[in-house]
C-alpha cells in the first residue's frame, strides 16, 4: 500500500499545481498560449498572413468541448481497464 500513499500525495500535489494559478492570477483570461503566439508573430513580423487555413474547424466551443470530453473519457477508460486487468491478473497468480 506504500505505492498507494505515494501516489495519493503526488496526485494532491498535481491538484495544488493546477488550482494555484487560478488563485495567483485571478482575473486573467486563461486562453490558449497559441493564441498569444499568433499575436507575438504579428508583432515580430507585422503583416504576416498565414498562407493556408485549417481544412475544418469545430463549429462551436460546445462541439470542441464535446470532442475534448470524449477524448479524455476514451483515454482514461483504457488506462483504467488496463490497470484493473493487470491488478486482477497478479492476484490470480
Amino acid at each position: 500500500m506504500r505505492v498507494g500513499l505515494k501516489n495519493a500525495v503526488m496526485l494532491l500535489l498535481v491538484v495544488v499545481l493546477v488550482v494555484s494559478p487560478l488563485y495567483l492570477k485571478r482575473g486573467a483570461e486563461f486562453g490558449g498560449a497559441d493564441g498569444r503566439a499568433e499575436e507575438a508573430i504579428s508583432e515580430v513580423r507585422p503583416g504576416y498572413k498565414p498562407w493556408c487555413a485549417p481544412l475544418w474547424e469545430p463549429p462551436s466551443g460546445e462541439i470542441e468541448s464535446l470532442l475534448f470530453a470524449v477524448q479524455a473519457a476514451a483515454g482514461s477508460s483504457f488506462v483504467f481497464y488496463y490497470l484493473g486487468y493487470v491488478k486482477g491478473r497478479q492476484r490470480r497468480e
Binding site: 493546477v18 494555484s20 494559478p21 487560478l22 495567483l24 492570477k25 486573467a28 483570461e29 486563461f30 486562453g31 490558449g32 498560449a33 493564441g35 498569444r36
Partner: peptide, 8 residues
Amino acid sequence: PSVTGSCS
C-alpha cells in the same frame, strides 16, 4: 491553467 494566466 498556468502561472502566466494562460493555458497549455
